[in-house]
Design a protein around this nucleic acid. Structure first.
Lengths: 332, 332
DNA sequence: ATTCGATGCTCAATCGATTGAGCAAACTTG
DNA sequence: CAAGTTTGCTCAATCGATTGAGCATCGAAT
């Protein structure tokens, strides 16, 4: 790597400005007034620093300072509207609060998740937000041992406070919406199918509970095979549905935009039967409203979730329960 | 912030293990064999480190080491398939190469872009990749002054090597595809409209050039008002199109998925005329193929672009020209 | 003329890990 | 058994910035 030009340090500038390194340091970090340095010295140092293209060595600076102002986040993926939004807003909100955000993407790999968490702790992050982590408690335990605060987002854990969507209520509402539309558009009342996700997942199971509650509200029984939660991928959704060619009106509850891709592929291949299908999706996509048959989507309130998460930062709560954030149901 | 438990250091462990800090350091960073420390000492230290939840202080470590292994990237947005993919793949590829990736999102704000670049340099990044930067040269100049390598991605600069999509060729191909479909589906041959982006942008202007070339290939003149490149947002696209109600067959070249949202909204509101419209989009979205009227999309080859970018890392090329990476045209 | 408080700056210890140099003990070799 | 080698470990300087303490100088007040 480029070794030609050694990075300029305060010592280099001190020589050029005929001042002491301490004075240079004070000028460059803005504490010169407090340290009663003259304006003329400050200006001289700043001019030279500019000329030399000086950039503080964050490692040296952070080593000495007591607070790092670094705040870390791990997310499973970026290439997904929901997590992309989370990462982006997190960075913006952190900057607003004068914190330095470091986000890292862990590809839904539990090992990488933990490694990344350790790395962020090594970088002296003051707080670590684990988003959609498969094993948030392992991370929380490690953070606690290092005296670093941790907060769970999107998926709850038991060792640190969690901020998650109110999956149950939103799923119940979405289910009702789909059933309403099946009734009004197709004149059909019957059990919907639940497609996508994994039963073991906290979020999926809460959504299934909401899905079941809505059916119970209407006194409709759900056949065992209507809950198809064997995985997230578009592939999986399509394969599960390939066996199913509706012989009459039907409705589907789709458990993520990823699964939705598979559902829409299946739907497009249905031919005439296509017009007798209605579905809704738990997750938002701007193109969702243009997909034929789609009656609505649940948009998780990323802004509120992060707001709550930031409120928890630096606060020592004994409370480890999850905060539920309501979702927005978008009807098409 | 949590100050209760001071972080464990090698000195703490040295006391517990009855060894010197140097020995502890060597064990923990894996150089103990080279330094001829005994296996028993190593095991003792590792056990204690584990118990104490030790995490190295990266700041202290990096301050002393000569290489940081940190590699930085700035991206304008995450909540967008293209940039999301870039960030995600970048992180994965960096890890594969034993580098520590730090990505930061700059919201298309030129000031923030530069600030973020400075911060990454402060963190001793060995190389900085500026993705879609509005002013890449300003960043390159700063990097050069600090002896840090910089590489431009997605948008070219003149002070550092650039890796960008072959916008011209892909736009030309996409334009031909749309015109072909207009001819075959609608029996119509005429100039398309170009919607979205900004003329001043390098990418948009290259795409307009390709768009014009395809028209020239067919001897079709483009009326001035058919190039509508006054901004990226969905809003802008919709407002521009609101004045336009096609009285016959038409075709559109849409310059990003963001603009596509606006186009699709407009399209959905057209009523019967809707069936006489065909469009294609420069950018990929998995739901694109389900949008009525959409005949194809250009998918930029993120994998190849990053591969090229990584090949440039650590290489001292005088060459500042841009590498063009071909795109994939997806036909529906 | 002495005392006092500003003013403007420098000294030197420090943060935690790394690393070249060096030292003692144990072990080989002739 | 002396000389040389290997083994196992420690010392102390160092990376670059920060910061409490301290030291002159100067003008004002007594």
């Amino acid at each position: 790597m480029g070794n030609e030009t050694k990075r300029t340090t305060i010592y280099d500038i001190a020589v050029l400005a005929q001042a002491s390194p301490s004075a240079v340091s004070a000028v460059l970090n803005g504490s010169w007034q407090k340290r009663r340095l003259s304006k003329s010295l400050a200006e001289r140092v700043l001019r030279i620093a500019e000329q030399e293209g000086y950039a503080v060595n964050a490692q040296a600076s952070l080593l000495r300072r007591e607070r790092s102002h670094i705040i870390g986040m791990i997310v499973p993926k970026y290439d997904n509207r929901y997590f992309g939004h989370i990462a982006e807003q997190f960075e913006a909100m952190a900057r607003d609060r004068n914190l330095f955000p470091v986000v890292t993407c862990t590809q839904r790999d539990p090992e990488l998740e933990f490694e990344a968490a350790k790395e962020l702790v090594s970088y002296q992050a003051e707080c670590l937000i684990s988003t959609g982590a498969t094993d948030p408690d392992r991370i929380s335990a490690f953070c606690k041992a290092s005296g670093v605060q941790s907060i769970n987002l999107d998926l709850p854990g038991t060792l640190a406070p969690s901020v998650i969507s109110d999956n149950y209520s939103a799923a119940r509402d979405l289910t009702h919406l789909i059933m309403d539309r099946c009734a009004s558009d197709l004149g059909w009342t019957g059990p919907l199918r639940f497609v996508g996700g994994r039963r073991e997942d906290h979020n999926t199971s809460a959504r299934i509970a909401g899905f079941e509650a809505a059916h119970a509200d209407r006194g409709i029984a759900i056949p065992e095979d209507h809950i198809m939660a064997q995985g997230y991928s578009a592939q999986t959704a399509r394969l599960l549905l390939d066996d199913f060619t509706p012989d009459g009106p039907t409705g589907l509850f789709v458990n993520s935009t990823i699964s939705l891709e598979g559902v829409v592929q299946w739907h497009a291949g249905l031919g005439e039967a296509r017009t007798f299908v209605r579905y809704g999706c738990f997750d938002f996509d701007p193109f969702g409203s243009f997909l034929p048959g789609n009656v609505g989507m649940v948009e998780q309130d990323v802004g509120q979730m992060l707001k709550r998460a930031f409120e928890l930062i630096g606060v020592k709560t004994g409370a480890k329960e999850a905060t539920l954030v309501p979702c927005r149901l978008v009807k098409f």
